[in-house]
Each structure stands twice: as C-alpha cells, then as structure tokens.
C-alpha cells in the first residue's frame, strides 16, 4: 500500500521534474529541477531496499555532481535564457520515442526469456550496506580498483583543463598596476 503510494508519487514528480530539465530554456531552472529529481530517485532506491545506493545517490549525485555544475556555472553566463534554433520538434520527439522503445525491447529481451539467475543473493541476517560491502570487495574488487584509478585520472584531467593559467592571479596584477601608478606619481 505505502509502496504503491510512494512509487506513484515519486514517479510522477520525477517525470515532471525531468521534463522541466529537458524542456526549459533557463539553465538555473534546469539544474535545480535535475537536482530535485535526483533526490526523489534516491527515494525510489530506498523503497527498493537499496539503502546504500540511495545514500550514495544523495552524496555523489546531489552533493558532488550538482555542486560541480553549480561551480562551473560561475564561468558561464546563465542569467539570460539559452537561445537554440530547433528545426523540427515533433520529428525529434518521434525519433526519440522510437529509439527508446527499441532500447527497451533490446534490454528486456533476456528478461522475457527468463534466463536471469541470481548470482549473488543477499545473505540472511545482514543489512544492505553490509551485503553490498561483502559483494563489492570480493567479486567486484577489480572493477572497484579500476573505478578508483578512473576517478583519479578524471580528477587530474579536470584540474589541468579548468586550471590553465591559474598561476596568473588577477588581483595581484591589479596590485602591481596600483603600485606602478603610485611609483609614477612619486616620481612626478
């Protein structure tokens, strides 16, 4: 009963918020509705019993990724609306729907044939974070380490790309100019 109420409430709100994300012209509206939709997706994870995944969704997606977008927006001019010359709207909706339908059929084909067997069923008497830790650090240890290396590479790439010419500070340049002006006035 409560699961049904939660599912329908969350799904309607998520679909509405993500539609706002995709269709609005304002970058700030888009980012805010995306963050709100991700919080509600964490709610869906909690109703599914994936506690640790919901917490990770809240911390990483809503906390880190949206904060990263917010910081990056300081570089861009976001106060005015985005101007886009869209040619054929209805054709894009039709193509997007058809492609997504094709993806759904492809992805659901193994489910329809009932070939799925549970490889790592959750152990009895263990909470979800504990079970996740047991599976993650035994069966999925190598992908975990590879993901750690990937995050390190991404961090270095982000620092190098965004931090070019960071050694030239704008404020110290202003100070130098002011000092030069003072010196010139002194000479006069």
């Amino acid at each position: 009963m409560y699961e049904q109420i939660a599912f329908y409430l969350f799904s309607v709100l998520i679909i509405g918020l993500f539609l706002v994300t995709v269709l609005t012209k304002n970058v700030l509206y888009s980012m805010t509705s995306l963050a709100a939709g991700m919080v509600l997706i964490a709610g869906i994870f909690f109703t599914l019993g994936a506690d640790f995944l919901g917490v990770v969704q809240l911390i990483v997606y809503v906390g880190a990724i949206m904060a990263l977008y917010a910081f990056a927006m300081m570089f861009f001019d976001v106060t005015k609306d985005v101007k886009e010359n869209n040619t054929n709207g209805s054709l894009i909706f039709l193509l997007g729907g058809l492609t997504a339908l094709m993806f759904v059929i492809i992805m659901s084909a193994p489910i329809m044939s009932e070939n799925i067997q549970a490889l790592y069923p959750p152990m009895a008497g263990v909470t979800n974070p504990q079970a996740v830790g047991m599976v993650l650090f035994t069966k999925y240890l190598v992908p975990f380490e590879v993901a750690a290396v990937m995050l390190l590479v991404a961090m270095i790439a982000g620092i190098i790309l965004a931090g070019k010419k960071m050694d030239q500070s704008l404020t110290t340049e202003d100070d130098v100019i002011v000092e030069i002006d003072i010196l010139e006035e002194d000479e006069k």
Partner: peptide, 15 residues
Amino acid sequence: IAVAASEVAVGLGLL
C-alpha cells in the same frame, strides 16, 4: 555513478 562523476569532471573542464 562513478563513471558519471568522472564524466562530469572531465566534461566540465572541457566546457
């Protein structure tokens, strides 16, 4: 989620 985080870090630097 890990892939998305690294994608955003690199992509925003490129942007």
